[in-house]
Design a protein around this nucleic acid. Structure first.
Lengths: 102, 102
DNA sequence: GACTTAATTAAGTGATCAGCTAAATACAAA
DNA sequence: TTTGTATTTAGCTGATCACTTAATTAAGTC
């Protein structure tokens, strides 16, 4: 499952948002949702495999934290597409419809 | 179907990439894929409803173009999450693991 | 009007996914 | 080593999704 698909799910997106603020243990994350622990665990697995979060084992807890590199790659794609778009012929129309850019 | 889910599909992502370079008719897009016209049409519908592309009817053709606002909103989410992360307590560790940032 | 071209809508199907409960693993505490 | 706590793995199920072919809408051409 790729990075984009990983972020398609709203629960996983909320997890990423939460980890953007601070690192959290799996159980701590679970407590924020009305959902079973296995469900969250699976979501965390997906995010981990997508390179969006990393885990640190601490005793019987797993501390999850945001992996900013994962988000970087995501951002890079957007920039690239928009870069092409900026360079394209559509630029004229863009300046007409949204002049207060950048 | 939200913006994130719309971009989860690789075919739709490729369409967005293509439209980033120039506006294209539906049939023109279909020709780039080994896939039926209805399949592409459905993908375009999803992208349109997600605010990622716009359509202009020109005779019997539908010209699709990238809607940069959609990508902006998308990008904004990524930046916001990373922004929180940059401001968070994890910053110390971040500077240790990736000192050459920004 | 009849035919072709461009594209969409309709209806169906196999695959994937997000959630569940139950069971397993692993560490901590007693 | 028994019990409890934190988390994951296994197995199941209903829902959603990405395709398909067939039918439909709409516009250009003869």
């Amino acid at each position: 499952m790729d990075r984009f698909t990983a972020l398609a799910d709203p629960t996983r997106r909320r997890i990423v948002e939460m980890l953007g603020q601070r690192a959290m243990a799996a159980g701590e994350i679970t407590a924020q949702f009305g959902m079973s622990a296995p469900a969250i665990s699976q979501h965390l697995k997906v995010l981990k495999e997508a390179g969006l979060v990393s885990v640190e084992v601490s005793g019987q807890r797993r501390i999850y934290r945001l992996d900013p590199n994962g988000l970087d790659a995501f951002d890079a794609w957007v920039r690239q597409v928009r870069g092409f778009w900026n360079a394209g012929l559509d630029r004229l129309e863009r300046e007409l419809t949204k002049p207060d850019d950048e």
